[in-house]
Design a protein around this nucleic acid. Structure first.
Lengths: 193, 193
DNA sequence: GTCTATATAATGATAGAC
DNA sequence: GTCTATCATTATATAGAC
């Protein structure tokens, strides 16, 4: 692994551990085993490191929220998507703990966030529609209802791991299962009997 | 208004504007029109100011999530609770933008948070039960279902204003109405036809 | 690419006079 | 209670040698 990569990995680990504002460029360089000067050769400041980590998160999102498969989707696909999303959130948990504060400081980054979020949103909406087409879920009353449902799923899935943390609970198999159940509740109005 | 109070009000306003880590005790003293030394007479450090603001937030929560009235509750009571909660979140929006990060730094504060959150949670659950008793909502299948529902409402209501912000949308009458509609969707499985 | 050394500024916090 | 003055520490960032 080259030093640029080492800086990125070390930063992610320190940010997740202590939060972005408690971690200085000196801390990062130190933990990465390089000099502060060297760090500034690779990145012009701390925010550029943070932005790089956001981009990695965005790439991970794009992979998870793709419209899957040609075949008719089963409920297992949905569960896989939810679980994969939880894993990503946990991997980049510092982002989810601070995202509103971080994006407010950087309007360009916020624009990128909105763009990628929109794609994820559309991918998830397409999945719901595929379920409706396949006859697994009942059709929503109208587009407005579909949008509300998608938004709700988004908020819950995005907040669930952090919510567990706020309550002092571990993000373990139990916690993931609970989160998946919560998502089932959200979708229940579309379940067929 | 005395200086202690002025420090608190000024801090809230600066934290909401720029975030806790971008605001120093010097900034606060400056904006409050007092000396840094004076600030340290009233508070021993920045975290103590943040803790004081959390306590004010907790007090506001306790008021909103009380079990209301002796009379049978109408759906208007629920809407009032939701709207009042949104107002509080907006007033202390810096907390909601950073809460996971802030509580991780201060285990005592996290314990307080859990305690107050639990009371709010119970107050909300009691309201749902009151609706069921009054025949406004259908009874949930069991306690587990009630707990899931309460948790879901909590997450959504807590995250809605910040969610609007993340999407670059204003927290105006429209946004509040959308949030209320979202809550209606969550409760829909209990609605009677 | 990487290091050491250093400039510059800001931060949290205290001492001591009034 | 409030101020001025000041300290020790840390942060970001750059210059220049290798």
């Amino acid at each position: 692994m080259n030093n640029r990569q080492r800086i990125i990995e070390t930063s992610l680990s320190l940010f997740n551990e202590r939060g972005t504002s408690a971690v200085s460029t000196n801390h990062i360089a130190d933990a990465a085993g390089i000099s502060p000067g060297n760090l500034y050769y690779h990145f012009s400041n701390k925010m550029e490191i943070i932005r790089t980590l956001f981009e990695r998160l965005f790439a991970a999102w794009d992979e998870v929220f793709q419209l899957p498969v040609k075949r008719a989707p089963s409920m297992t696909d949905l569960e896989k998507m939810i679980t994969a999303n939880y894993q990503i959130i946990w991997q980049y948990r510092f982002v989810y703990r601070e995202q509103a504060a971080l994006l407010r400081q950087d309007t360009e980054l916020q624009a990128r966030y909105l763009e990628v979020r929109q794609r994820g949103y559309e991918g998830f909406a397409a999945l719901i529609e595929a379920y409706v087409t396949a006859g697994v879920l009942s059709p929503p009353a109208d587009d407005k209802e579909l949008a509300t449902l998608t938004e709700l799923c988004w908020i819950v899935s995005e907040q669930w791991p952090i919510n567990l943390e706020l309550r002092g609970r571990a993000f373990d198999a139990d916690g993931i299962m609970e989160g998946t159940n919560l998502m089932r509740w959200v979708l229940r109005p579309l379940f067929k009997e």
